[in-house]
Design a protein around this nucleic acid. Structure first.
Lengths: 226, 226, 226, 226
DNA sequence: GATGAATGAGTCTTCATTCAT
DNA sequence: CATGAATGAAGACTCATTCAT
């Protein structure tokens, strides 16, 4: 029986009539944002797959059907979140570019601004930061341990190298080892992904040698003591 | 009944005899590896959640129950894959370290070896490379488009900056822009993730300024023309 | 949590292991037939939409998932039922035609065979009969009353006419009024549907006059007393 | 606020003012009819279950809640449609009976009027015709193909028989085969439904033989050449 | 009277896991 | 050990109905 006609028709009832936990009424715009906010929180903590619509409506304190008044499906929520984030980023970059007089600013100052802008942007929303940059989170709790171990290890190896280098006085003493290790890991992971997964046009060891050379050439000046 | 002795000699029936494309029978060890190989292929392409046990047994041409003879659950397969990968990496790093005489080798040559080793390792198994380096992202087909767009854009912005810098002669002419953009993106993403998600100890804008300064200080020497 | 890993894994349990209410094990073929049989019963009584998968599995005493091992979806069950029925009918007609020597049999005897065969076929499976011929059933309980009233009325009108005609001696005295009313109603409904819904090529009143004439011409000889 | 007095005078806001394509305001009576008209169109095309309240309000260009001001539930709309149709039919039949002087009119002329009236009635509203005469079948798009095939086939068989009969000169040459096939199919379906589903009082093959005989006796005079 | 956001019971379908053979 | 039919908890999504405005 699809619907118990004449028996239990009933819908609404009780709370939720537009209220939030604050009891303030919400218009469509606000409510959509509210759902998005709650979903972001959950996606950030548990990932897309481990976040259920049930979790979202509990968090948002709304009815099941309400979600579907604002979003076509679960993916739509996630996609909207991504789109908004990316759009904000694009706007930021665009506005940042506008206000720069390339002739008046030193290259280093320019680079500095760029990097600072990006970091500030990510720092401003660490939930989206987690969603977008997630490196292992949001997959499945049971993988966390394994992943964490690896991430720790790989950074550790680099740090050890740096310590040795600093002892040998070959590596600059003022290097922030922790930060540096992350830079290297990030760079290597991304380069690997880019060349070996996305553009895997028969990279043989000679290609890899070439790539290695360029990376070393780029890193060395900032890394080693003169 | 046991009548058709000549027809169904060994185990149950029909195909699925545990053989692989070769038709050769497999022992336990081989069979487990076979399953892992098939699962890896699928996880790499569709991610953990979008890969079903059904897909794995189809790919491996085995019976549903067989999987559970070798793995406790689906997660166990994935975890085993990760573990194996990490273990291999650790072994590689360890053996690489053993054979180095730090007094006999230049710091740059040492760095070169380290990087080359890592790249070779990733290049050697681009399925695992995809799984490990993208994991959270190999999520759902419908997100791919959005993500790709962003990734393209962010790299594009950096490349544009480099072009400008090279025109102005402030950036070294021999920089491989594509590679460099990936290094920067990778570094920034990871650093952001590390500081703003994992260790989010109240990073205010002063912390970010400090981090920015260090990154700039590290990158500049290799980036700018003298 | 998609699946409460390590917490509540469990499936099977208890009954249902292939048993029916008879306790006899079933092979794939039988089980599919069993599901079909149960579904037919329910579809026949409550219609496609008012029959839930839950009802079917209760009736068949199987698990929810089992249905989907044999049928892609609910529609698939219904369609299979229709297909089987139609196929059986086609086979029947074909075999009936084979054994007829048109030169040796009187036209009336031939007609007789045809009609008898069809009636026997429908009489043989009144559940499918109801599903296929349903004229108002299987829609929604709440419509039943309205429909029944109309059906009664329309037949009533015809029967009244016949009574009058028989009193006037213009209608053959040996007419089975109930049967005849159904023949007329069925014929008129179908003709209307055929000409006014399916092939609605601008039937104006002249067309209708022509159709009427033909119907009258065909019915009259068997209806009126000489 | 009530500022835009000149813009939003009457009720709430925007469109949906209750008007139809003419832009004229509607009173309660008209509005109810309007909803019925729209619902009829949709029920006719997609059936009761595949027509949603959402579809109806879109078609009628009214608000969701408005429907429930005129109808208790979805079923109520459908039932109203049926009731109206049946009532109209009853009125028609009643008025047709009034004006007949049975002593002055030939039985055949009387039959002719009856049939013509019925056909005209159905032809006058092919949406209701579709709803009433197909009801159970306007079920689900996916079944259409299967059903159509059967309907075609069954009519085809009869037509083939007629062709043969006409070649043998046993069947009247002036028979409209298409029309006749529909008459027979309609009659047989309805009789089957009546006797085997509704009044299934142990119809055994002897009953069926009796029914068959009567049908043949009734059809033959109009069918066969003398 | 009209509106339409909110409601939530109900329904289909998926899929990891088990266990008799 | 391999098999694969059976299992059923879980989850996404629908949609008739209500009621504050």
């Amino acid at each position: 029986m699809r619907r118990k006609i004449l028996l239990t028709p009933g819908p609404p009832a009780g709370k939720g009539y537009g209220d939030d936990r604050t009891g303030t009424a919400m218009n469509a715009e606000e409510r959509k944002k509210h759902i998005l906010r709650c979903a972001k929180k959950l996606f950030s903590r548990h990932g897309f797959y481990e976040t259920q619509i049930s979790d979202i409506i509990t968090e948002a304190d709304i009815a099941r059907g309400t979600v579907y008044q604002y979003f076509k499906h679960k993916e739509d929520i996630f996609t909207t979140l991504l789109e908004e984030f990316y759009t904000a980023w694009e706007r930021l970059i665009a506005s940042a570019s506008e206000n720069v007089d390339l002739d008046a600013v030193s290259p280093e100052a320019y680079l500095r601004t760029r990097i600072r802008t990006t970091l500030l942007f990510f720092a401003g929303d660490n939930e989206m930061c987690n969603i977008v940059l997630r490196m292992g989170v949001g997959i499945h709790k049971s993988f966390d341990a394994v992943i964490k171990r690896f991430e720790k290890k790989i950074a550790g190896v680099i740090i050890d190298d740096l310590v040795i280098g600093q002892n040998y006085k070959t590596v600059r003493a003022d290097i922030d080892r922790e930060l540096f290790a992350n830079i290297i890991v990030g760079a290597l992971f991304r380069v690997s992904y880019y060349y070996f997964v996305q553009h895997k046009s028969h990279k043989d060891s000679r290609d890899i040698d070439a790539i290695t050379d360029r990376i070393v050439g780029f890193i060395s000046p900032g890394l080693f003591a003169k």
